[in-house]
Design a protein around this nucleic acid. Sequence first.
DNA 1: CCTCGCGTAAACACCA
DNA 2: ATGGTGTTTACGCGAG
Length: 679
Amino acid sequence: MMQESGTETKSNGSAIQNGSGGSNHLLECGGLREGRSNGETPAVDIGAADLAHAQQQQQQALQVARQLLLQQQQQQQVSGLKSPKRNDKQPALQVPVSVAMMTPQVITPQQMQQILQQQVLSPQQLQVLLQQQQALMLQQVIVLPPPPACLPQNPGQQQVATQQLAFQQQLLQMQQLQQQHLLSLQRQGLLTIQPGQPALPLQPLAQGMIPTELQQLWKEVTSAHTAEETTGNNHSSLDLTTTCVSSSAPSKTSLIMNPHASTNGQLSVHTPKRESLSHEEHPHSHPLYGHGVCKWPGCEAVCEDFQSFLKHLNSEHALDDRSTAQCRVQMQVVQQLELQLAKDKERLQAMMTHLHVKSTEPKAAPQPLNLVSSVTLSKSASEASPQSLPHTPTTPTAPLTPVTQGPSVITTTSMHTVGPIRRRYSDKYNVPISSADIAQNQEFYKNAEVRPPFTYASLIRQAILESPEKQLTLNEIYNWFTRMFAYFRRNAATWKGAIRTNLSLHKCFIRVEDEFGSFWTVDDEEFKRGRHIQRGRPRKYCPDENFDELVAHNPSLIKNMQSSHAYCTPLNAALQASMAENSIPLYTTASMGNPTLGNLASAIREELNGAMEHTNSNESDSSPGRSPMQAVHPVHVKEEPLDPEEAEGPLSLVTTANHSPDFDHDRDYEDEPVNEDME
DNA sequence: CCTCGCGTAAACACCA
DNA sequence: ATGGTGTTTACGCGAG
């Protein structure tokens, strides 16, 4: 019964979380490869499994390497350095756009070799490059069809084994080369690591660095020249490889890192993408120039204007040993920051995971929608419609992640305590919750008995808008509530009554009747206004009084049609806007989805005509068959005093203006020009 | 302190 | 008579 409706097929529930937008691209790009290497080699030879495992690690190393190189390129670029043969335009990459955005630049083998030949590589760089090469070879091996290892007589196995042997030999060579390099560096006193230490030596090296140490390091590195030559085993597939594997978090985080997160201008982390954009859009902005000061690490030279800055940049920070060394240091600094960020991200993730596991229903484990910190979550990633979700501090809309008595969800946007504490949107206007809001928390609220931090009106609206035809009966609204929120599976009388109250009270909810009964639609524009139905004079409810007499003396209690044109038009527009807002392409217009709604305008016009004939009619609109159109589509629109902006046109004659004086006390009627108060 | 929005409860009417 | 639906009001609470 509760699960009857099949309209809930939101797919963005968990796809968004964790910023795993790249996972799809991983499928597109490297998924084939990985699927073959991982998924379809069950219990095969250990070598292949190890390769696959090693591949993951190498991919990470690859990423670090790429970032290092990107940083260097970037620094070179902004420093006026020019790689001898560096292409201004990167070769066209056949990668998904989003991936390309995450990895705006890809190091070509030529570039790699150039960088290597520049002899300014740090041991870390060399190491990661070597690892990159290794990873490349791993990729090549893994790309090969997985050998059915359990078959001893497989003719292809021998070939694969030979290749693996050759590969391992190459690996060995590279490791030796790497170690030689590290040893040479050690001899120069630039590196203090154990020869066999596999991890990047950067971390212990760069940890706790202070500016003075950096300065010292600059001095040291400028005198350190190591003539390392790579074997030059370039591979044409490098571009693709490096691009395809780059979808993990560190890259993303580093790319989105706040450029202003610098300490006294010494550190500046820029995403290549952003930078290129800023360069294109703001020709006079420069990452190394700000507030009239050169931001080259350790420089801080005052430059009057941008031109002088450029001169200064070209003269003082030209391509020389000092500059390149400073680039190196800068890279190390950046990498250290990235490591730190990765650590903190990991810690954050663990914290959130831990807190989330405590949800009432472990199976649900609804990932905290926006758990991905605002730092890492790209706003562009399938963000909700902008109009529906102004993520302003004043409107704690979104995840509105409730933290309650039991289960809890945390977002970076807000950490609220909902539970008994009510949360609401802006008092000024309703901020509609987008489908993404609920959808992202859908699993959570479905299983956790947490009161959703949305108002009833918002939820009702959402329910209606989610429905295929943008209309729901009351019972369907009930069902939506119970289906979507575990919280509303209890105390039905309470919240059902609240729903009914809200439906009646809010202007935005329009009851429409047809021959089969009545259903509710929503006027989204009206919803955003957040107004309530304005009743007649404030009436003290006295059960002892004769209600009928009250009705007789309070015509506002009597529903009638009004403001048809002014009302139905925005209604349809609002419905369409709502649908566009909710990205529901299946139902382009309300009239298409719902013939009744499509006829709403004409029906109301007819109704208006009828009403004009009975200007003073005080009969209830519930009386059927007042007009032929009404008989077909008896549309009941809640009465509302005309607002000035809505009262344009001849429709105002529906309401006659003579209301009782005590309306003046009601703020809602200050601007209301008319309100019918007959007899 | 006041106002306002919201949730809740309740009374009541209407209808099937 | 009963239950569902719809309307209206009162009141408390929290936020601004």
